[in-house]
């Protein structure tokens, strides 16, 4: 288990905002100066934004379990970096196809799309009851809420 308490959450939110700022800068400056490498770093930053939201949302009572940290969080990040690198490095080139697809398209369709879909959906199904929202945690929430007045 790793603890993501309020202080760590503050740091993650600030990092998240900085990453959005960097993506904006990379897109803007990269486009004007025709610097595709900078835009590629923007792509990597976008993968890190996804991680930031995971670190804040895929936790229960400020705790993230190690299996969730690995699958989907880290695996998602790795899949995106591989897919973006394949697409970026092979763009515009005539190359031998893999499974009927250009290597860049293969990276985006198989690794980014299918890979991320499997990563998010399978992990959600697998870890929902055990780590994401255990029955006892929901019951505890409902008990706590029942003692408070509903907001209208």
């Amino acid at each position: 288990m790793i603890t993501i308490d309020d202080k760590k959450r503050d740091v993650i939110v600030v990092i998240n905002a900085l990453l959005w700022a960097f993506v904006l800068y990379a897109s803007w400056s990269g486009a004007i100066n025709k610097n595709n490498d900078l835009i590629f770093y923007g792509l990597i930053a976008s993968a890190l934004i996804v991680v930031c939201f995971y670190l804040m949302g895929a936790v229960t009572n400020d705790k993230m379990s190690i299996p969730v940290l690995i699958f989907p969080v880290i695996i998602n990040l790795v899949l995106w970096i591989i897919a973006f690198t394949m697409a970026y490095q092979t763009r515009g080139q005539k190359m031998d196809f893999i499974w009927g697809m250009h290597p860049g398209m293969f990276g985006m369709i198989i690794i980014f799309w299918v890979g991320t879909m499997i990563c998010t959906a399978v992990s959600f199904g697998l870890f929902f009851d055990k780590y994401y929202l255990p029955e006892a945690k929901w019951a505890e929430f409902q008990k706590e809420v029942a003692q408070l007045e509903k907001i209208h």
Binding site: S27, A31, L43, A83, A87, Y88
Partner: peptide
């Protein structure tokens, strides 16, 4: 080839914005 690669024929920043 740019019509079948992983980025397409729009500028790279377009793909970045779409993906994110």
């Amino acid at each position: 080839p740019s019509f079948v690669d992983g980025v397409g024929s729009m500028p790279l920043q377009a793909a970045l914005v779409f993906g994110l």
